[in-house]
């Protein structure tokens, strides 16, 4: 007979269910969101600022297209659509997952430990950390570019093409989510070098905002087969806009996004676990 462990009196004081990851994320994000709302005037100012800042880049694209009619083989509406997919996916992920960016601060101040003593998962708590509605406004120019681009671009609509639009955004958000996990893992291990990671994240965002054809064959090969950022929005956009891949890749690669996303999440979760283990063994 299996050995029955004796249950001491302290084992259980009442029945408890563990809050799931989504529930944990939602109630934590809600608290931070409400905290941000306590400083309403400041919040509004920052929201207006980030709206302008995000619109500025869009304005830059318009200025460039004042001089040329295509960029990397893309017309203005097509370029706007591509830009919109990258930016909308990025800023959605930024709204949902950027708590990882604050980990360096938590590590330095020692407040990371107060997350470890909670009976809920670490990632949902961290994702929701410092959640603020401030990150909503940069999504406005992003979605505006996406919608205007789609309306003006000569798309030969099919059901599959239409489905590819939300699919592109979803893959983008998931991929950037994995990037935020990597950012978090990096910040736990190297809190004093947290800025280094920013160039990777924001560089990736900037890079996917423009037609990859701009970057020349070598870089395109790298972005398709090395660090396959091409599957975030470039490949699906080629399909929606009915462009051929300048690299001549087979058309099934247009749909390879989820494979890349899954692989990146695998790497990110391993890195996250390694970072937690590192923290547990060093304490700082």
């Amino acid at each position: 007979m299996a050995e029955q462990p004796v249950e001491p009196s302290f084992e259980r004081r009442f029945e408890q269910r563990t809050p799931g990851a989504v529930a944990t994320y939602l109630f934590t994000a809600r608290m931070w969101g409400r905290s941000a709302m306590q400083y309403r005037a400041s919040l509004v100012l920052v929201m207006v600022n980030s709206l302008f800042m995000a619109s500025l880049e869009l304005l830059g694209i318009l200025v460039v297209f004042g001089n040329v009619s295509t960029l990397g083989g893309f017309s203005l509406p097509e370029a706007l659509y591509l830009y919109g997919t990258a930016q909308a996916a990025f800023f959605t992920s930024d709204l949902l997952f950027t708590g990882t960016e604050y980990l360096a601060v938590r590590i330095r101040m020692g407040t990371f430990d107060s997350l470890l003593i909670r009976p809920v998962g670490m990632l949902p708590q961290v994702f929701a950390d410092q959640f603020t509605p401030r990150r909503l406004t940069p999504m406005i120019p992003a979605f505006a570019a996406l919608i205007v681009g789609l309306a003006k671009a000569p798309v030969h609509w099919t059901l599959l093409r239409a489905a590819m639009v939300p699919y592109t955004l979803l893959v983008g958000v998931v991929v950037f989510g994995a990037v935020w996990v990597l950012v978090g893992a990096f910040q736990i291990v190297a809190a004093d070098a947290s800025e280094v990671m920013n160039s990777v994240t924001y560089g990736g965002q900037f890079m996917t905002s423009y037609p990859l054809a701009l970057y020349g064959r070598n870089l395109m090969l790298f972005l398709t087969f090395g660090l396959p950022l091409a599957y975030v929005n470039w490949q699906p956009t080629l399909y929606v806009l009915d462009h051929a891949d300048p690299l001549g890749t087979p058309s099934f690669l247009r749909f390879a996004g989820p494979l890349f996303a899954a692989a990146l999440w695998g790497v990110a979760l391993l890195a996250w676990r390694a970072a937690l283990r590192h923290h547990r063994s060093t304490g700082s």
Binding site: L71, S194, V196, S199, V200, G203, F206, Y210, L214
Partner: peptide, 27 residues
Amino acid sequence: GAMVGGVLANTVFGIIKAFIMMAVWRQ
């Protein structure tokens, strides 16, 4: 840390922008 991050970011963004400008000037 901020310095190294700044150098990296300025370089990466510079490279991407350079490609964009080259595409414009090619036309």
